[in-house]
Design a protein around this nucleic acid. Structure first.
Lengths: 104, 104
DNA sequence: ATTAATTGTAACCCATGAGGTTACAACTAT
DNA sequence: ATAGTTGTAACCTCATGGGTTACAATTAAT
């Protein structure tokens, strides 16, 4: 399984760098286009909110992309966070090895 | 972009059909293996709870899969739900077409 | 220079959902 | 019949998404 070395990009950063800046559009304008509040979009742009499925659908329509693109970015970001936040999951042992143990 | 015809499977159903039943293990046992409460796992198995990143990590360890597998299943399920729940997102127009309109 | 309008962010509120603990009915084991 | 186990949900806590409203800062208009 691949090992993530660096924190994946937050999709909000992608929206900012690849869309807002090059196209010179404001958060307010994009929020209007997307049909969401300025606050909602601001949070995402500032990487303080997540891309929800509904938002992914909206972004895919506005930018002629796919919702999966956005959700995958978010997924990778969330997964990385989860990996760092707690190591409790690392204590889970493979089920198959537990079978062996229960028979010894 | 692909069109989803049928509701994607809920990962909880996969866990039930592909792991619990064939291996004859109880929710209680698997919950113990995963290091989560019976209630938490029960909700997922009964498709009333989502696979979170942390849970995906745990499942990947227990079943020697990848966390992405589980998160992708959940993503597809969530996306389908979002598509059906509200059609508001469909009102979003492509940004490029709005440029044309703003210039006419 | 002053006023008006716009922008971006956050407080406030509400709704929802994840998670655990506890409880309990139903089921299984003794 | 009793004891133990199982699966589900009530209760509670916490976090987050979303909008409305507010406001400081910035920009635009006068």
């Amino acid at each position: 399984m691949r090992k993530m070395r660096r924190q994946p990009v937050h999709p909000g950063g992608i929206i900012k760098e690849d869309y807002l800046k090059p196209l010179s559009i404001t958060i307010t304008e994009l929020a209007s286009i997307l049909g969401v509040s300025r606050k909602t979009l601001s949070k995402i742009i500032n990487e303080r909110g997540a891309i929800t499925p509904d938002m992914a659908l909206r972004l895919s329509r506005a930018f002629d992309t796919t919702p999966d693109l956005w959700l995958n970015l978010q997924k990778n970001f969330d997964l990385w966070q989860a990996e760092q936040t707690s190591k409790d999951w690392e204590r889970v042992k493979p089920f198959s090895s537990q079978l062996l143990h229960s028979q010894t």
